[in-house]
Every structure is written in C-alpha cells, then in structure tokens.
Write a protein that binds this DNA or RNA. Structure first.
Lengths: 200, 200, 200, 200
DNA sequence: TCCTAAGCGAGACGGTACGTCTTGTCTTCCA
DNA sequence: TGGAAGACAAGACGTACCGTCTCGCTTAGGA
C-alpha cells in the first residue's frame, strides 16, 4: 500500500500552481525548470522527483487547462441540440468563457512546447465526439467513417478556437457559437442523411 | 546591387538539402545546427550567415514542404466540384500523394518545433480558401462569416491529414477524399443556403 | 547522566562496521552516506544522530585502523634496539602485518578523503616519538629540536609505508624493517652525538 | 600539425591564474568550478574543454606550485654539500622562501583535495633524489635500496615542511635548514658507509 | 595576370539550461 | 518515544546546444 502522504500532494500542487502562474505571466516556452522551482519554493531535485520534465508537468496540469475548453459533445452535439439553427445556450457560454480564459489559453495555444497538450486535447475531443456519435446515431448509419468525422470536427473546433483567440476577429461569442453550431450540424446531418428539415 | 554569386546559392541549397535529409531520417526536433552543418559540409558560421536559426532555415524550406500539400481550393472548392457527392479527381490524387510523402511529412506533423510551419500552412490555406469563396460566391451571400468559415475548413483539413498520417486508420485515400469532399460540400452549402440538391 | 543504552552502542557499531566493510570493497572516497545507512540497515536520520559526517564517522573508526600500524616507538626506538644494525623482531612483524592489512590500508592511504586520518596518524605518531625521545634521552641532549626530529621520523615512516604499499617494490618486509631501522638509528645517533659504535 | 592557437594558451592561463588566486583567498577545497570560470571570465564549457575537473586543472598548475619547493637534490644533496654540518646556503634560502609562499602553500598542504598534488610532489621528489644518488654514489654502494632511501628522504622532507608551515613552531628557517641537512647527511652517510668524518 | 575582397571551414568561446547527485534537515508513522 | 523511511531544500556537477567570434584558406571578378 502506498500512503498518500499529504506532503507529496502539497508539493505537487505547489509546483503545478507555479507553472500555471508563470504561464499566465510570460507564456509557456521561455519558462525554465529553475523558474518553476524558484517560484514554488521547492528544490530542483524535488521537481524531478515528481515530474520528468517541464512538459511532463504540463501534461499533469491538463485538468486545470482542459477544464477551460468546456465543450462537451454530450450537450452541443445532443440530437435535440442539432434540430434548429440556434446553438444550445451552453455553447454560447463556453465561447464566452474562452474569452475570459484568454490570458491562460493564448500562451498555450501559441507556444510550440505546448503542442503536446494541444494534440492531446484534440485527440481526447475526437474520442469523445466519436463515442457520442456512435452512441446517439449508431456507427452503421453514417455515410462517413465515424472516427474520420470525429477527427474532422475536433480539428475544426480547435482551429476555430485558436483562430478566434489569436487573430481576435471582431465576431462576438454568440456569432462564433452560432456559426460553429451550424457547421457542426451540417456535417452531422450530411453524414447521417438527415436532409434539410428547415431553411435555417 | 547585390551580385547573385552562384556560391551563395549553392551553399544555401546544401544547407536546405541537409535539413530535409535529416528530417527524413530522424524527424525535425532532435536535429541540431551542428548536425546540419556537419551534413552540409559547411562551417557553423556560414550557417548563421544565411539563416538565423534552425526554424528560420525550416521556414525557408517551406516550398519543398508546402508543395507536398497539393490541395488547392481553386480545384477542390470549385463550384462545379461541389455539385455531386464525388470528389474531384485531383483531390484523390492529392491524398494519394500524401501517403507517398509520409516519410517527410510525419516528422513535420509530429515534431513540436515544426508547429510554426504547420501554423503557416494552416493560415495560408485559410487565406486561400477565403479568397476563393469570396470570389466564387461573394462575401455577402454567406450566413457564416467567410474568414470564420475558411478557418474552420482549413483547420479541419489539416487535422484530418494529421490524423490520417499519424493514426494510420484503415481508410483508403479514395475514402478520405470522398469523406472530406462531402464534409466540405456540406459546410459550404449550409453557409450559402444551397439546399439539398440530391440525396448524395 | 546518560544511560549507556546498549542499543546506541549497537547502532554505532553497525554503522562503523558498514563503513569498514565498504572501504574494503571500494575504497573510501566513493562511499556516500546513503551507502553506509543502506548497508547498516539504519535510517539516514540515525546516522546524523551519531555522527556529523562521513569523515566524522571515519575518525571514530580510527581504533580499527590505527591498530594496523603497530609501530610503537617504545619498542622500535628503545635505546637497546638502536645498538646494532638489526631491527627488533617486533618491527619486522609489524611490517609483515602491514602486508596482510593491505586490503584495508591501501584505499585509506590513497583516497583523498582519508587525508584527515592520515594526518592524524602522523601527528599522533610524532607526539609519541617526541615523548619517547624526551623520556629516553632528554630534551637538552639533542643537537636537533626534538619536535622537529619527531616530525621528521614520523613523516618518513608514513611515507615509507605508503610507498611500500602503493608501489609494491620487490623488497621484503624484512628488508623494509632493516632499512628503516638503520635510517632511524642514524638519525637518532646523529641527533644525540652517539658516534659510530660499529661498522654495521 | 596542431596550431598552438594563442587564444587557447591565453584561456588556459586565465583559468590557471584564477585558480591560484582563489586558492590564496580561500584555500583549495571550497572552490567550485563555477567560482573559477567566474573569476577567469570564461564559460563553463570552456573550462571543461581544457580540463576534466578542478583537480585536473590543479595538476596542470603544478609548475606554479612545485616551483615554490625550491629544494633541488643536485644542490642540497651534492657530495660537497654533505661534508660539513652546515647546510648549503641555497637550502637556507629555500626554507626562507617557503615562509613567504605560506599564503599559497598552506591551503594546499591542508586541503584534502590537494592530496593528489602533494603525492605528486612527493613522488617526483623521490625520483629526483634517487636519480641523484644513483648518479653521485652508484646504486651498488648503498646498504639501503636507493628507491627506498629516496622515498624515505622525500617523505621526511614533505612532512617537515608541512609540520613547519602548519604548526608554526618557533624554529627559524636557518634552524630548519641545519637540522634537515644533518638528518639527510646522516641518512646518506649511513647508507653509503661514509663513517663519521668529524664530530659535527 | 595579378590582387583584393568576399565567402567560407574550422573550431574556440561565453552563456544558459539541463538532468543528476549528494548532503544534511525535517516530517511522518510504526513498534 | 525512539528510530526507520524517505521527502525535501540546497547547490555543485558535467553535458548539450546555442549564437558569436576570430583565424586563415580559397576563389572569383575587377584592375
């Protein structure tokens, strides 16, 4: 049996919070391990005792980061949500939330070192979408392989968010949500042959 | 006036070819400047005389790389191409070409350092798509902001290629082309309200 | 009053024996505190409870080590012993003993960290020699300051032993003893003006 | 052919001088490689380009250090020098020089890390003495193996210097020289059976 | 045809960060 | 309640690259 050892937990949190704080200040790439341990008031060795590298630490922070992307396929891809051209309220709120989280997200979306987590977000997102579609519509019904479709949707979603946060186009969160909703709906309808139920 | 000096040109080519060759062998990230100059039989100084960094050199190689992504919106998003559910032949060929170029592309798509060029490919792709749509359909006609739509399509395209080359799912190039074509068509039809012309 | 506490004694012995054993195996320098506590089946804290450092422990082991240098001035510098050119039997035995103790002594004589104990052996040896000479001949009789003479003899003795154990010249223990005896005798005779009693 | 490259020579001198200066200030042991490169205004890498460790550097400084021990067997063990009880003038001067060099020598004689160079001084000294004796008196003439005798004399000499510089006894340089001379003379006379030519 | 400036190979250099190692302290928990 | 277990802060270590720098050698292209 391993004892949880409250100290260990505390140390890890100190280190993770130090990283998050530093990312907000200067972005991810220029941060060094020394910066992190200085900020966390922790010995260099201790850092390597818990994480193998800065990237490894970063991956272990993904809960703090993934949580920012609050786009759950269960709500924004629910069958009911895809009927009309209006996006579910939750999606609009999610896009609004992204703006607020920009300080943390921008450095992550831009830094080259954070590519790993971006990839992970994308893959996890694709998996969730695929699972949801398989569940809600059934694999066999689709004219397009579900894994392909999921990858398409997940990639488009990430790209859209990246584009919006980086390029800062003048579109509002509502507009974003609506456009994204339309495009998703079109893709899924096409895949499952749901026809044009209304003009939109 | 600067004289072209054939030697300068030759040196740059040596360096670029050295990089391309090394990428094929081990991927992009682990390559060091020293590796490149050793391979190119060139002095370290000479390298920095022409390029400011490995990334800078990489960007100057982008012709050699961008050329591999032979997806031009002028052909695969042409109005005529979007009528039926069958992808234009050129698109199928482009996907087939990607498989052949896998040895070069995979390290680039995966390495974190190559994020820059990936971003550049994506942005340039988005610009081309936007220009094409503006030209072919007119900005005003769209229910979705054209820049947003272009970003969506470009992101989805890159993600799909990445997914296909990395995960190596069992779908053929033809299948890829067809699915991708359907999804693009659905998005554009939805944006421009072209209705369901046929069952597909 | 502190209780002797047999456990404390036991722990110290465990630690000391661990050190001695490790010295025999790999020499002194590369041993770490962690090595010692692992070998002794003792907690790190416990070690520092009894000794302040590896060197400190080493000094507390000196009985186990000093005992190997069985050269007592009371016997090998006794007035009677210095009459003839033949060394006292005890001295020959002492040199023979050194060969047997080589496994333990060599790492100590060579390791840089063991300089402390070597210095201590030398100083103690010099003190003993000085006390003996003062006692046997009287301070005033010497043409050479007794502390200087003692230091000279002690230094020469250590050096000879070091040289013999390290360089492994082909001379036998008997030869060593005889030569060393002659040289000591010559030094003391010169100091106290005892003339040439015989040809030797 | 290797070019000497004046820069390399300069760098090495900078580093060596930095070490010597630091030894004078704080002794040898507590100096770190970083201290040295800081003082020498040299990159850490550069240090390791020329020397493998602090000790290695130290050994390469031995000319600067060995020179302080100006006791050449050719003068202080010359046949002529051993006739009378008075030490050659050069020996007295050498001992006087040692006092002046105390600031540099004391840290070296005491620090545990400098054991290496001390050993080297001792060995080289022994070799020189052996060579001189072999040359001046002939190997066969000695009742004592010459290498043994040389080791004895060299060890005694180092020990005496160490004792004098460390313990700072009230004896003058002249006294030291005289005593040391007598003892050496006695040892060599005994070895080569030169009898007592005079009372001394 | 020479000669003179540029391009170049070679590699030393200062610098930054890395991941590892050992030390001595401090905490927790068990017997 | 003392000791084993081991987390921890501190900081030196030797390595890997970086981008800059001198140093001569080669090699045109204009005189």
């Amino acid at each position: 049996m391993t004892k949880p050892d409250r100290r260990v937990q505390r140390t890890r949190e100190l280190i993770q919070q130090a990283l998050i704080a530093l990312i907000r200040e200067r972005g991810y790439d220029p941060i060094t391990v020394q910066d992190i341990v200085d900020r966390a008031n922790v010995g260099r060795t201790t850092f390597y005792l818990h994480y193998t590298s800065k990237d490894d630490l970063f991956l272990h922070c993904h809960d703090a980061i993934l949580g920012q992307f609050q786009l759950s396929p269960h709500t924004h891809l629910a069958k009911a949500a895809l009927v009309g051209p209006e996006p579910p309220e939750a999606m609009t709120r999610a896009f609004q939330h992204l703006v607020e989280a920009r300080a943390l997200l921008t450095p992550i979306l831009q830094g080259k070192d954070s590519l790993i987590i971006l990839r992970r977000i994308r893959d996890r997102s694709a998996e969730e979408i695929a699972a949801h579609l398989r569940n809600a519509y059934g694999e066999a019904e689709s004219r397009i392989p579900l894994d392909l479709l999921a990858s398409y949707l997940a990639g488009a979603q990430i790209a859209l968010i990246q584009w919006w946060l980086e390029k800062r186009p003048p579109h509002s969160a509502e507009q974003l949500a609506q456009s994204f909703h339309r495009l998703q709906r079109a893709a899924i309808r096409d895949a499952f042959g749901l026809g044009e139920l209304e003009a939109g």
